[in-house]
Design a protein around this nucleic acid. Structure first.
Length: 433
RNA sequence: GGCCCUAUCGUCUAGCCCGGUCUAGGACAUCAGGUUCUCAUCCUGAAAACACCGGUUCAAAUCCGGUUAGGGUCACCA
C-alpha cells in the first residue's frame, strides 16, 4: 500500500513550497489509492505554535488537500522514548556528557561511519559518506526527541512507503537511513522534489514577497488556480495542456516526470491561471466568492444588479480582490475634464450634437427594453454614419468619465435609463460651457 | 570552505532514458496587427534558448569526461 505524508513543523505559516510538497504527496497517494497522512512535527516546544498549526490545516483544507490520518508528534512522546531506550540498551546510542551547549548531557547516535547509497526516484543514485557526520544528537534527553529520530520512528510506525519532500531534505537522508537501520526499519522510497526559487534563484522566502497560502487566499486567488500553478512548478503532464484541475492532476501526475532543477516562482503565470479560473466560474458562484471584496456595491446602490457588475469584471480581473476596482462610476457622478469627451481630432460642436442625438434615441426606448442589445441596436446605425469613435467614445466617457472601461452599452443597461440620460445631459452641458 | 544537487527562450517547460524525424515544440510575459470607440477578452504573427570545452560516433540538445555557473546543506531547528 502506498502511504505518503506531509510533515510540516508548526513554526511558520503554510507557504507555497509546503503546499506544493503536500500536493505532490496527496496526488501520488490518491492516484495509487493509497493513504495521505498529515503529521505535525512539533518536537520543538519553544518554536511550535498552535496558530501555525491552524494556518497549515486551514490552508490545506482550503486547497482541497484532505488527509486520511492526522498525527502530532508532541502526542507521541512515549513512542519515541521506547525507541530511544532500546537504542541505548543496544549501545547504538548513548548519553553524552557535554561541556558546550545549554545542557549537561544529550543523547547521541553511535555513527558507524559508513558510506550510504540510496536511490532517489527523481535523481537516481545518491552517495554520502556518513563518517563526516560524527555522532550526531538525536535527543536532548529521553523525554525530548529531536527531528531525525522522530521522523524515522514515525515514518516506520506509520508505514510510510514514499517520502516526497523538498530537495533541502537530501542531506538529511543519510542520517535518517542510519537511524532506520539501527531500529531495523525498512527503507522507504525517496523522491526529492526541486525547490521553488525566488527571482534571485535562492530558496523562496518571505524576503521575496508574499509566500504564504493565506496571503494569496486573502488577495482573492482561487484555490484551484493555486493548485494548478504549484503543480506546474517542476512538473507538467508532458503534453500541451496547461489548465488541469485536482482530479485531472490525480489522474496524470507522475513522480518520474518531476523536474530535477529548481524553478523560479513567476507571479505573472499565477495571475494568468487565476484569470483563467475566474473566467470559467459560474456567475452566481463567483458573486458569492466576491462578496467580501464588494461591500461597497451593496451598501451604496441597492438598485444596481450585483451579478451584472461581476459579470462585467469577470474577464478583466486576475484575482477577486480586484472586483471593485475601476468601477466607481457606478456609484458616483463621474468627474472628468470636458476634453476627455472629444474623440481624437473631433470638435466640441460635433460631440455635443452626438450627445444630443443619443439622448433622443435612448429616450425612445421603453424602460423595460433598456438592455445592451436594444441600446446597441438603436445606436449602431447612427454611429456607423457619424463615425463609431466619435459617437461611442463620447457616449462611454459621458457615462464613466474614464479613458478605459467596458463598452457603453452594458454600462448604460446597468445604470438604467434615467441615470444614463442624466449623465448624457450633464456631459452635453459640460461641453457647451 | 566540505559534502550533495542542478544546468534548453526573460520565466515555467517539451524533447534527453531508446543519438538522426529538432532549420529545438508549447505556455506566461513582451512587441506588432486584427475583431463593433478605449480597456479587457478573443484571433493572427514576431522576437526569444540547447552554459562552455573536449571525447565517442557517419551523426549529439540527446551518451561520456571536465570546466564554469547557480542552488541546497553543514544546530542541543525542522
Amino acid at each position: 500500500m502506498i502511504i505518503t505524508r506531509f510533515a510540516p513543523s508548526p513554526t511558520g505559516v503554510l507557504h507555497l513550497g509546503g503546499a506544493r510538497t503536500a500536493l505532490f504527496n496527496f496526488l501520488f497517494a490518491r492516484q495509487n489509492k493509497g493513504k495521505f497522512i498529515l503529521r505535525i512535527e512539533d518536537t520543538d516546544p519553544a518554536r511550535s505554535k498552535k496558530e501555525y498549526e491552524d494556518d497549515i490545516t486551514n490552508g490545506l483544507k482550503w486547497l482541497g488537500l484532505e488527509w486520511d490520518e492526522f498525527y502530532r508528534q508532541s502526542d507521541r512522546k512515549e513512542i519515541y522514548k521506547k525507541y530511544l531506550k532500546k537504542l541505548i540498551e543496544e549501545d547504538k546510542a548513548y548519553v553524552s556528557k557535554e561541556t558546550r551547549g545549554q545542557r549537561e548531557s544529550v543523547i547521541r547516535f553511535r555513527n558507524p561511519g559508513r558510506k550510504i547509497v540510496f536511490e532517489d526516484l527523481i535523481r537516481g543514485e545518491i552517495e554520502f559518506d556518513t563518517a563526516e557526520l560524527g555522532d550526531f544528537v538525536i535527543a536532548k534527553d529521553e523525554e525530548s526527541p529531536l527531528y531525525h529520530l522522530a521522523v524515522v520512528v514515525d515514518d516506520f510506525e506509520m508505514k510510510i512507503s514514499h517520502i516526497i519532500r523538498g530537495e533541502d531534505g537530501i542531506s538529511n537522508t543519510p542520517r535518517q537511513i542510519l537511524i532506520q537501520e539501527a531500529i531495523k526499519a525498512p527503507r522507504p522510497i525517496y523522491a526529492h522534489i526541486p525547490l521553488i526559487l525566488g527571482p534571485d534563484r535562492s530558496k523562496l522566502s518571505k524576503r521575496h514577497g508574499a509566500v504564504s497560502v493565506s496571503e494569496y487566499r486573502q488577495e482573492g486567488y482561487l484555490p484551484e488556480a493555486i493548485i494548478n500553478f504549484i503543480a506546474f512548478i517542476g512538473w507538467n503532464p508532458g503534453d500541451e495542456r496547461e489548465i488541469l484541475n485536482l482530479n485531472e492532476l490525480i489522474k496524470d501526475f507522475s513522480l518520474e516526470k518531476v523536474q530535477r532543477a529548481g524553478a523560479i516562482f513567476n507571479i505573472q503565470r499565477l495571475n494568468w491561471m487565476s484569470k483563467e479560473y475566474i473566467k470559467k466560474k459560474d456567475i452566481d458562484e463567483l458573486a458569492e466568492l466576491c462578496e467580501p471584496y464588494i461591500k461597497k456595491l451593496k451598501t451604496q446602490n441597492s438598485k444596481l444588479k450585483i451579478n451584472d457588475v461581476i459579470k462585467l469584471q469577470q474577464e478583466r480581473i486576475n484575482k477577486l480582490s480586484e472586483v471593485g476596482e475601476g468601477i466607481d462610476y457606478f456609484f458616483e457622478e463621474p468627474e472628468y475634464k470636458k476634453e476627455l469627451l472629444i474623440w481624437r481630432d473631433s470638435t466640441e460642436e460635433k460631440i455635443a450634437a452626438h450627445l444630443e442625438h443619443l439622448s433622443k434615441i435612448l429616450c425612445d426606448i421603453q424602460e423595460s427594453d433598456f438592455n445592451k442589445e436594444k441600446i446597441k441596436e438603436a445606436i449602431w446605425k447612427y454611429a456607423e454614419e457619424q463615425g463609431r469613435g466619435d459617437v461611442l467614445w463620447s457616449f462611454r466617457v459621458a457615462l464613466t468619465g474614464l479613458e478605459k472601461s467596458p463598452n457603453p452599452f452594458i454600462i448604460a443597461e446597468i445604470l438604467g435609463k434615467e441615470e444614463t440620460l442624466r449623465r448624457l445631459k450633464i456631459a452635453k452641458l459640460k461641453i457647451q460651457k
